[in-house]
Design a protein around this nucleic acid. Structure first.
Length: 576
DNA sequence: GCCGTTTTCGGCCCGACTGTTTTCAGTCG
């Protein structure tokens, strides 16, 4: 069983939790959490680095001691210290720490005083009124714990985070409603939503307004509010019927920038920014940036960054993945925008599983102002989608030639999303593939091969000189289906070596590649296509989700295939 | 336990909120 980065991060976080329960030094505990985060955000595979005898103590927040422990985890899947602590304090931290109200300190107390180790024991103790009398607890806390357990048991099997596009659908009308109040001067969404994370937990909205009390009243009265969690004069929280939590905060004009920065996060980014402030004898909080008691800035975000000598950092980059260092050196990427996109390189028509005809899709792309548009129907292996065989592909080439005769302002590219078969061969003959303008290749079947077999399958496909862009490279569906086992680092390097490209599939349930792997591809020197995989005219709008993902991956226009003109692109994809 | 134009010791991000207390600990973001 390979140990993945998130497994390592999980064990280090658990170790931190248990060390905290054991009363260890707070900074030692933080070290484990920092290392866990560092590894979680890494695109390179730690197991692979260990196997290659690379020095992992060079990684941020990983020192000699930590490196040793990580090595042991990779090699054995275990860690003595963690096992010892699990034995010493046999509390189900993984479950119990998910309950709000409970942190490591309280869990320890519950264990020491009442011997509680599981959710069930906790529930029984609370029901028997044993918790209220413990030091630092009380009736209210006991009651809240019971409610939390109830909530946890109810939600256990449901997804707690919302896909960005879903959150957008829910929050857009709510934001409009908030703005419709006459005293609201400005309203903006902060948090992970603003950073365009692929999933969103809850939503933070900041406002500048004249009469906060009245606006808060307006906010909690929204028709979709299911539950009011808090309703104060400057902050209120509600849960909507969809289950998403929304917080509204009234901010003064002079602090708006600091508050926006603070609530946009990420936490890790904020911590790093504050550290820099401290090193310059400044202090940053959500009200402003201060030198002693003198306030230097706060009205807008740019002012905050400027005061500590940083370039303005776009929200999508604020994950403490190197953006701060880049800002210090004035070398932040000039991120790609939707306006840079000149075409779409994956789409389907009624020939396979699309909802619209070739002519309709072509016209929709032309109306968007694209310079080129690839029709990439499925190949025959995808029987469910009525995939095309060699003969039908040749017919479609003819059909596209005809469509192109009617247009002077857009080129419809002859293409296919050809299936990679189980053995790495392709589902169409080379004689047909070589007649296409550009070829997208993808896995749809045999998702459960071993990591090696799956990787080799793709490597073999890449050696075929007639393929160009690997579609949805990991095959994941967010919140629904994990990636198949595949060594993406190897795939990225193979793409580089073979002159292939990878896709950022812009469909909101895919967003595949992820930001981390897409950045890795950029760093290795592999360009990416941002493609909608549209099965309808409307799906062409997915492009903006893909662009957001690309921005989180630090991509600039030059890193994205479909920012180039077709004339240039044609040269770039040439392999033989 | 990590880190270093304060570099091998001594610091490590910051504030709000809650419920419990009567000045604070724990949790959360």
């Amino acid at each position: 069983m390979p140990i993945h980065n998130h497994n390592i991060a999980g064990m280090l976080n658990e170790l931190a939790d248990r060390l905290e329960m054991d009363g260890a030094n707070a900074f030692r505990i933080r070290s484990y959490r920092n290392a866990a985060h560092s590894i979680h955000e890494m695109s390179r595979d730690i197991s692979g680095m260990v196997a290659n005898k690379e020095d992992i103590s060079q990684l941020p927040d990983v020192g000699k001691n930590m490196a040793e422990k990580i090595k042991v985890i990779v090699q054995t899947g275990q860690l003595d210290l963690l096992n010892e602590l699990r034995e010493k304090i046999p509390v189900d931290t993984k479950t119990l720490l998910q309950l709000t109200q409970l942190g490591p300190k309280r869990l320890k107390l519950l264990y020491d005083e009442l011997g509680i180790t599981t959710l069930k024991e906790l529930q029984e103790a609370a029901q028997n009124d044993q918790i209220a009398d413990l030091k630092g607890f009380g009736k209210k806390t006991q009651q809240k714990i019971l409610e939390e357990i109830h909530k946890y048991l109810q939600q256990k099997d449901t997804v707690k985070r919302f896909k960005w596009a879903i959150a957008e659908q829910i929050i857009t009308p709510f934001l409009e409603y908030i703005k419709s109040h006459k005293d609201v001067l400005q309203a903006e969404i902060a948090g992970s939503y603003r950073r365009r994370k692929e999933t969103v937990g809850d939503i933070d909205i900041l406002i500048i307004c004249n009469n906060a009390k009245s606006v808060m009243e307006h906010f909690v009265s929204y028709e979709e509010v299911k539950e009011i969690l808090s309703h104060g004069s400057t902050k209120s929280s509600v849960i909507l019927v969809s289950g998403i939590q929304v917080d509204l905060r009234a901010i003064s004009k002079e602090s708006y920038g600091s508050a926006l920065h603070y609530f946009t996060g990420s936490k890790e980014h904020n911590v790093a920014v504050r550290k820099i402030a401290v090193s310059k004898n400044l202090k940053i909080n959500e009200y402003g940036i201060y030198k002693n008691d003198e306030r230097l800035a706060g009205e807008d975000e740019a002012g905050i960054y400027q005061q500590i000598g940083l370039q303005y950092i776009e929200p999508e980059l604020r994950e403490n993945r190197g953006e701060i260092e880049a800002a210090q050196k004035n070398s932040l990427p000039k991120l790609v925008t939707i306006n840079d996109i000149k075409g779409d390189l994956q789409s389907h028509t009624t020939a396979s599983d699309g909802k619209y005809t070739l002519e309709e899709m072509a016209e929709a792309a032309r109306k968007r102002g694209y310079e080129y548009f690839a029709i990439t129907d499925h190949s025959k292996r995808v029987t469910m989608a009525h995939g095309l065989d060699d003969k039908r592909v040749l017919e479609q080439i003819e059909a596209i030639n005809k469509v192109n005769e009617t247009y002077s302002d857009i080129t419809i590219l002859k293409s296919m999303e050809v299936d990679i078969l189980k053995d790495g061969s392709l589902d169409l003959s080379n004689e047909v593939l070589k007649q296409l303008d550009i070829v997208v290749f993808a896995i749809h079947y045999y998702r459960n091969l071993s990591r090696d077999d799956q990787t080799n399958r793709v490597l073999k496909a890449m050696q075929n000189p007639y393929v160009h862009i690997m579609a949805h490279p990991t095959g994941r569906l967010i919140g629904k289906r994990d990636s198949y086992e595949i060594d993406m680092e190897k795939i990225i390097h193979a793409a580089k070596d073979n002159g292939c490209f990878l896709e950022i599939n812009a469909a909101p349930e895919r967003l595949d590649l992820s930001d981390i792997y897409a950045k890795m591809a950029k760093d290795v020197g592999v360009k990416l296509a941002i493609s909608t995989d549209a099965h309808s005219e409307d799906n062409l709008n997915y492009m903006r989700f893909g662009v957001a993902q690309a921005r989180r991956a630090w991509l600039e226009p030059k890193d994205v295939l479909n920012t180039y003109s077709w004339t240039d692109l044609k040269q770039m994809i040439k392999r033989i």
